[in-house]
Design a protein around this nucleic acid. Structure first.
Lengths: 153, 153
DNA sequence: TTATGTAGCATAGCTTGCTATGTTTTTGCA
DNA sequence: TGCAAAAACATAGCAAGCTATGCTACATAA
């Protein structure tokens, strides 16, 4: 009886995938509201994080570091170039490769963007203690690692 | 010095929002691969979970339960009707309201869809103990609740 | 050297999320 | 009763994710 019951129900609030999706949408909503005044979008944000740490990266380097598909990064870079956040140059020595550079405007956004992301993270983690936050981040990393493994092999 | 350093850097692997987004994308990739043979998509899946528990819900009821925007659920329902998963009827008594009903085909997908979601959750949580999983799900619910609060007020 | 394969990027077309806005029906109040 | 506000849903248009496919440049092997 119990097994049959278990097979016929699915508690969404006990589903990691369901909760992860909901949590990520709420993070995106909050961050979107905070960075919209800066002229940034939530998809551009992770690219900016990489480039603020050091630009001149190739499209492939961004794709690998951010773990997104090649077509996704290509389209995001198109919008970022359109919006005046980046410029792209061809690589000498290998004409297939392009390098991505921040514009001056993009550089000025760094501090307020960090502040926006930090504020959103703080709001999200408000009810957790410092120890619980560290543990929670670590658990997310473990879950990410598990899915990356089951993806690759 | 330390504060200045902290203000000028942003460790993405220490950012809850960054990790939540990455984790949710990996969940979606895995679930997409598992339910694609069933003719279901990741956006339709949460709607199906609600309807399998009892159909005849209104669009507004789905919107509130799933915490997505009205336009999003409207478009998802359009695709589900197109794909033969649901039918919509007008509510007697209030012509503005519609009720959503599963088709026979949609009902047959319940067991294999539950199995797919369960398998994806298991793969994701493989490296966590049973106690850690429970704690992790609970922490996600707390984080979700915090963001919903800061949204509403 | 030439043919074949691979690497890097672009493009087409889809889903799923969002905001903004329009339409119709119902409600509520003067 | 009639009119304004609100409620429920539809639609337009954008961002960001995906798969599939195409193009060009480079590498490699016969």
């Amino acid at each position: 009886m119990f097994l049959q019951y278990a097979a016929m129900t699915f508690d969404k609030s006990a589903s990691a995938g369901y909760l992860a999706n909901h949590m990520a949408r709420l993070f995106a909503r909050g961050l979107r509201a905070r960075i919209e005044p800066l002229g940034l979008t939530v998809g551009q944000f992770p690219v900016m994080l990489e480039l603020w740490e050091g630009d001149g990266l190739t499209q492939k380097e961004l794709r690998v570091r951010l773990d997104i598909e090649q077509a996704t990064i290509a389209n995001t870079l198109n919008r970022m170039e359109r919006d005046g956040l980046i410029r792209r140059t061809r690589n000498e020595g290998d004409a297939r490769v392009q390098r991505v550079w921040l514009t001056e405007r993009a550089r000025t956004l760094r501090a307020p963007a960090y502040a926006a992301a930090t504020a959103q993270n703080a709001a999200a983690l408000a009810s957790l203690t410092e120890a619980e936050r560290a543990r929670f981040l670590h658990d997310m990393e473990r879950v990410i690692a598990s899915m990356q493994e089951s993806e690759g092999g």
